[in-house]
Design a protein around this nucleic acid. Structure first.
Length: 838
RNA sequence: GCCGGGUUGGUGGAAUGGCAGACACUGCGCACUCAAAAUGCGUUGCCCUCACGGGCGUGUGGGUUCGACUCCCACACCCGGCACCA
């Protein structure tokens, strides 16, 4: 009979009623949660001290948009994030772990229009609810540093940063065709257009010619790309890859073609080696260049074509299946290598805002040009020799150059790379071209024609032009508008607020108008992690010394949907702020982790599918700790979690099992474990050691498995081993409580208290490990024959190779397996393996 | 089309050159119970065998190695990024 059963039955016999006995074997999450929330509120254990002598760590989670209460997705990120943050506290770091809200944006604005309210009403109500839920969820955020991007104290500095960027020439206005969402009635950045649809509302995006504000992110394209190599080891592959593809660097050349009776035309090409095969030119139909080049004779045809192009949606235009269209502009360019006059066409397969908006067409080596040449009967000259069995059209593979010589230079016979170098050299010599690099990345369009955002702090004066609002007049506060005032009309609602928009020019004092656009909310979120370091600063955006003390963020956890948007913008901001001397580093996030999505029954949760899982219901049913544990134990953090495959009841069971250990310990607080049961002490030491390494590698699910193993080992020790009084049992139970506090703070706190300690377990220390206990007294050696396991031996870890070999060969199973065969070789990897080759 | 990642039991997942399936979930069996719940114990990759034991097995096909889930080559499928970007 095991000791535990004895104890339980005697307790019951003596004094306990049925309910008391039940209380002793399980705890009620709801009442425990309430109790500890109060204790934590009083102790405030996670307030980050700027002046702490401890080494600093910065744990950051992408701050949420306050669209309502928290959902399963938030729960997952917070649970994962909390493991790292709490671990660092236990390892003796001073941890900055702030939380705030990305509280400008269209959701609140649309809700305000619907309910005839002010967006702030909706926003701040949701912030209050979410904050409360966050606290109940047991997160270790430092709420003394919270911020909302819609607070004037915050957006004042968003505006200030805009002005600083403008001073440096990094914020500018230009007129160009922009992405327009007809439903949200606002322009969109390229990053917000997904397959021709609005990222937010799904409407088909159209083009409009508008004057808009841009950030010159392209100036940093090369560094944004280069630094990805440095970040690659600590950032997820898919984010690195997505950013590389988005930046889209290519190498080639600019080549200038003289134009008969016109200004010279420069094109960008990645294949300058094929220049001898350029048989015509194509200019983007909707580029100003095309309108300049077209001859009077061809103008009617061009105008008609342009009309057609403008009507086509982006969706149509993006299709590669679409037949080529175009119109001859009536003008000829001169190919610099052979002096041939080649026609200049306009077409919509050339984009106005990439490269120079014009190309040299080499149909023999480019499929698009091939199709165009076929359709309009233009000549095709091969300049790369395709393989003998080539049956395709344009040939883009490797091969020797042909038909590529003039009096001064011959590329014939050269392979592609060699030919590129040679022709660029020649072009540079002739001053007809130069090697060039191009990026797919475009400048960041930041103006939005909506209300609920930070107003752009510029005044437009007929006399003085663009005038920045003087810094001492910041913030430019939003006018009080609500309900129907906010209805989208194609211009910003701010433009209609007469009292607000009409101002005296700060420069000349004459009548002027405020810029009525607001900033993209991605501007707000590009610097919030810096503000957290000194959130109450009133005379500057942030304290540079504190930013440098805390930053860069040691880990940034969030959704992969921000792989190119927010993460690229925040990197750009940091580089600019570093150039301004305001930040001491160039990359804001040293390590990054993307959590997966919580789905249900194989599909994304949605109202229409009716497969939504409500966080509140799960928490009520299983308790906060069990839900957190389930989310963290489900698998690697970056994998999706199908809630239907999970077992929160299994988590409840485990937590109760762990908690029960704390009630079984009978040795006093502070009992010296050194004389305790060695086997259990080894198990504890291993679990603690491995759990630490696993947390550092973000392998939280495996860390929990190690804690489960320790709970199982401790249970066994109590019931059928050394018994509950052995100090090793206390040591193990305390280690379980501490490690469990990373995931299940309430259960851990209960355990810690029942083990006789004062709160809080979250601010005690990670258990120390005696290295001697990590050394095994014996190991299991595996004996293989032909790589197949035939026997296992318990041997000393420092066994000699010869001894191990002799023991292995003496095994009956081994002898049987090699019987009648010649032993050719014996591989010995003492102390764990012997492989006999026959 | 180009770039990146992946594919392991009934399920989620462990193992990154040395015992495949840790830890869980589910299922099955047992104990406790009048019964159920809860809890505990055992068992749970597939096939052959009463059993002892043996064979097979990490998407597919090859290769390297004494030894491969792990490294290399090719292919299939799934997921993600880019895409008329010259």
């Amino acid at each position: 009979m095991c000791p535990r059963q004895e104890r339980d039955s005697s307790d019951e016999d003596l004094e306990m009623s049925d309910t008391d006995e039940a209380d002793d074997q399980r705890y009620d999450p709801a009442s425990v949660e309430q109790k500890w929330q109060q204790v934590w509120a009083d102790l405030d254990p996670f307030r980050a001290a700027d002046d702490s002598p401890r080494e600093k760590r910065y744990a950051l989670t992408m701050f949420p948009y306050p669209s309502g209460d928290l959902h399963m997705g938030h729960a997952e990120v917070f649970a994962l994030h909390d493991v790292a943050a709490r671990y660092w506290w236990l390892r003796g770091y001073e941890v900055l772990n702030p939380m705030g809200f990305d509280s400008f944006g269209l959701n609140a604005e649309n809700a305000a229009i619907r309910d005839n309210e002010h967006p702030a009403t909706f926003t701040y109500a949701n912030i209050a609810i979410s904050t409360e839920s966050c606290k109940k969820f047991g997160t270790s955020f430092d709420w003394s540093r919270t911020l909302n991007t819609s607070d004037p104290e915050y957006y004042r500095w968003t505006q200030w940063l805009f002005l600083k960027f403008r001073e440096r020439g990094l914020a500018y206005r230009k007129e160009s065709p922009v992405n327009w969402c007809p439903v949200d009635q606002t322009v969109l950045a390229n990053e917000q257009v997904i397959d021709g649809h609005c990222e937010r509302c799904g409407a088909e995006v159209t083009k409009r010619e508008l004057t808009q504000w841009y950030f010159k992110i392209t100036e940093y394209a090369q560094e944004l790309l280069d630094n990805l190599d440095v970040l690659a080891p600590t950032w997820p592959d898919r984010v690195i890859n997505a950013q590389r593809n988005w930046i889209g660097r290519s190498e080639g050349a600019h080549v200038t073609f003289e134009v008969v009776d016109g200004e010279p035309l420069t094109v960008y090409t990645t294949r300058p080696d094929t220049l001898f095969g350029a048989t015509f030119m194509v200019v983007a139909a909707d580029a100003h260049l095309a309108a300049q080049l077209v001859t009077d004779e061809q103008r009617p045809a061009y105008d008609a074509y342009l009309e057609e192009v403008r009507k086509a949606s982006d969706i149509e235009r993006l299709s590669t299946e679409r037949p080529k269209t175009g119109v001859f502009l009536g003008r000829y360019a001169v190919n610099p290598v052979n002096g041939e006059q080649i026609p200049i066409w306009a077409a919509d397969y050339v984009l106005p805002d990439y490269g120079t908006g014009a190309i040299m067409a080499v149909p023999a080596q480019d499929q698009r040009d091939w199709e165009f040449a076929q359709k309009f009967d233009l000549p095709i000259v091969r300049t790369v020799q395709p393989p003998a069995d080539w049956e395709g059209e344009a040939y883009v593979g490797p091969g020797p150059a042909v038909n590529s010589a003039n009096d001064e230079i011959s590329l014939d016979g050269m392979e592609v790379d060699e030919a590129k170098t040679a022709i660029i050299g020649w072009l540079e010599q002739q001053r007809a071209g130069t090697g060039a690099v191009n990026f797919r990345l475009r400048d960041w369009l930041l103006s939005r024609q909506r209300y609920w955002g930070a107003p752009i702090p510029i005044v437009h004066c007929a006399k003085c032009g663009e005038v920045p609002v003087p810094e001492d007049q910041l913030p430019v506060l939003l006018p009080e508008l609500r309900g129907a005032d906010l209805t989208p009309r194609g211009v910003s609602p701010l433009a209609a607020a007469e009292d607000w928009v009409n101002v005296d020019c700060p420069s000349c004092g004459g009548p002027a108008k405020r810029d009525s656009d607001t900033m993209d909310t991605f501007v707000d979120s590009s610097w919030y992690f810096l503000r957290y370091c000194s959130p109450h600063e009133t005379d500057r955006a942030f304290d540079t010394d504190l930013v440098n003390a805390w930053g860069p963020c040691d880990v940034y956890i969030g959704g992969v949907e921000h792989a190119v948007l927010h993460l690229l913008y925040a990197r750009f901001f940091t580089m600019v702020l570093n150039d301004m001397g305001l930040v001491g580093f160039r990359e804001p996030f040293s390590a990054q982790l993307n959590q997966g999505t919580v789905i249900n029954e194989g599909a994304k949760m949605s109202k229409s599918k009716g497969n939504g899982v409500r966080l509140g219901e799960q928490l009520a049913a299983f308790g906060v700790d069990a839900v957190r544990l389930t989310l963290v134990f489900a698998g690697p953090p970056e994998d999706d979690i199908d809630w239907a495959d999970m077992s929160p009841t299994g988590s409840v069971r485990f937590l109760q099992r762990a908690w029960r250990l704390s009630g079984d310990v009978t040795s006093p607080v502070g009992a010296d474990a050194s004389g305790g049961d060695v086997e259990l002490r080894r198990a504890t030491a291993h679990a603690v050691h491995e759990a630490g390494e696993l947390v550092e590698g973000f392998r939280f699910n495996v860390m929990i498995a190690r804690v489960m193993e320790l709970v199982n080992a401790t249970r066994k020790a109590i019931d059928s081993g050394c018994g509950p009084a052995d100090p090793a049992v206390r040591e193990a139970a305390e280690a379980v409580a501490i490690m469990l506090s990373l995931v299940a703070p309430y259960t851990a706190e209960e355990m810690w208290s029942r083990l006789g300690h004062e709160p809080t377990v979250a601010r005690t220390s990670w258990p120390s490990v005696d290295p001697d206990l990590l050394v095994e007294s014996s190991v299991t050696a595996v004996v293989q024959v032909q790589g197949k396991v035939k026997a296992r031996l318990e041997v000393s870890p420092d066994i000699a190779a010869s001894e191990l070999e002799a023991l292995a060969l003496a095994e009956p199973a081994v002898a049987r397996a090699i019987e009648g065969r010649e032993v050719r070789r014996v591989i010995v990897r003492e102390p764990s393996l012997v492989n006999v080759v026959v």
